[in-house]
Design a protein around this nucleic acid. Sequence first.
DNA 1: CTTTTGCTATGCATAATATGCATGGCAACT
DNA 2: AGTTGCCATGCATATTATGCATAGCAAAAG
Lengths: 300, 300
Amino acid sequence: METRQLKLFCAVAEEGSMSGAARKLHIAQPQISRQIAQLEQELGVQLFRRGNKGILLTEAGESLCLQAQQLLSSIDQTALYVRSLGSGIRGNVRIGSLYSTVPYAMPYIKAYHEAYPQVELYIRLGSPQELISDLNKGELSAVFLRSSSHDSVGLHERVLGEDELKLIVTPQSDPMPGVDPIPIEKLENIPMCLLRSDDLWAYHEALIKECQRCGFSPRIVCQCFDTPMAIQLVQAGFGVSFLPASIVETHPHSEISAKAVKGLSVRSCAVLVWNENVYQPSSVERFTSFEPRPGQGRIG
Amino acid sequence: METRQLKLFCAVAEEGSMSGAARKLHIAQPQISRQIAQLEQELGVQLFRRGNKGILLTEAGESLCLQAQQLLSSIDQTALYVRSLGSGIRGNVRIGSLYSTVPYAMPYIKAYHEAYPQVELYIRLGSPQELISDLNKGELSAVFLRSSSHDSVGLHERVLGEDELKLIVTPQSDPMPGVDPIPIEKLENIPMCLLRSDDLWAYHEALIKECQRCGFSPRIVCQCFDTPMAIQLVQAGFGVSFLPASIVETHPHSEISAKAVKGLSVRSCAVLVWNENVYQPSSVERFTSFEPRPGQGRIG
DNA sequence: CTTTTGCTATGCATAATATGCATGGCAACT
DNA sequence: AGTTGCCATGCATATTATGCATAGCAAAAG
């Protein structure tokens, strides 16, 4: 049973006549006769009762007609669905992000989702190491990272934005409330909770170096390994910290704020990273090459 | 999308290799390449990622594989089902019967049902007129009747059995308990409930004629138009009746019994009647031409 | 009662399609 | 470097589908 035969058969059944179906399908009538006859022989069943005036479905034909219509419709839907998968408007994309890149990831993902609403999204946070590992294992399709968090081969990256690492304070821990930027000397004796991360290491070095140039060492009371913990520590009054400025914008209702430090400037890039060595469905390709419409801000 | 392509595709997907599938299907490998390529072009989607060592399904291919298997299975099942309809092992048969032919209809239908358990059966009782009418309207596929109940053209009949019309009595109304056959003279003054029916009319005539030859008229106290009512009347003590002998066997727990009357012999045939002018599904053809295995009794 | 009409079925030629064979290209393993 | 196993391509062939002309048939029209 080929779908062509089924289509022919359905047309004949609906039309109630072979010549009628032939006219409708713009093919010659004899071919219909033959195809139907072949289908009948193949099934070993008479599908039509031939009268002089038209034809009538037999019981078997009636049943086949009903089921064939469903089958053909299923086939069409399957074709449509597969096509949509191939074009990337359907599919699923598994995304990872650092906490500190959420301000870039969220509007990006949101815009992508609005452009391709039928793509299923899986999103999770993780450390740079976890994300890179899962990316290489193929468990994640793309991850949002800070630049130079990775060095594996085959990983492509796209810079989404850049922001300065700033001093994160609460009103209580702010060494100079109301002043921005503040001079570096004001950091003497200020307790700090620094985030240890490969991509922030340059910042630490710069900070320590700059402090020592001013005659003091920074008072590092705590080191932590992930951004939300650093923020929690600052909010809990353990001290100040240094984080990409944009992260403050994801805590709009908290008391923390970001301030620049005069003479201390290290910038950090938020990047989208994916693996071009492993096969990616079209939906993922569309995701990694996605360009949000201009005018959409970072927070959305 | 032709089913042949889907079958090929599924084989390749399951085998994970075009040449493997080719060996399995006993066809040449290049054809597989071409058919798959054509399918891909038709869908506008890449279904496999071609590596040097074998091939791998893309996301779209994965999806198509799953759905194609279901589709192919559905198609097979449809073919099987239609075949079964055509062969008559499936379908439905609508049967009518007189009350008086139930002793023939029941074992016949039962044996047919055991031979073709997947055929749906609709069964109902009715008067000869109702049954013939519904048969001609196509609402019934076949009916069990008494012979010569019908005279319409196009109706074929098959004689299923013949039984004598006998005197139906209860122990109380029996004119000669323990004696069978009884002489016709004993019917003088015995109250009778006669069934008026075209096919029993010959019997009435014979009865009246024979009684009058013996010098008396039968005492007909009641005439009714259907067999169960006649039986009820006999059981209720209204009198005796005359019915085909076999009907007593469907009342094994009642007190009625059938006795022959000496010198009075009219036989009645139970027949299966159907309409050969209107199309009948194979299941009905199998029903009307059904031959219960020898050795099966009338009551089963 | 014959003719016309509308339908399906069949024979034959042709075009489209699928299939097989031989071969090329490619990468991995020996 | 040679071998092997894979997929892709070109070409010839067999199978299949399609179109045209026509036969057969019965109902409707004249």
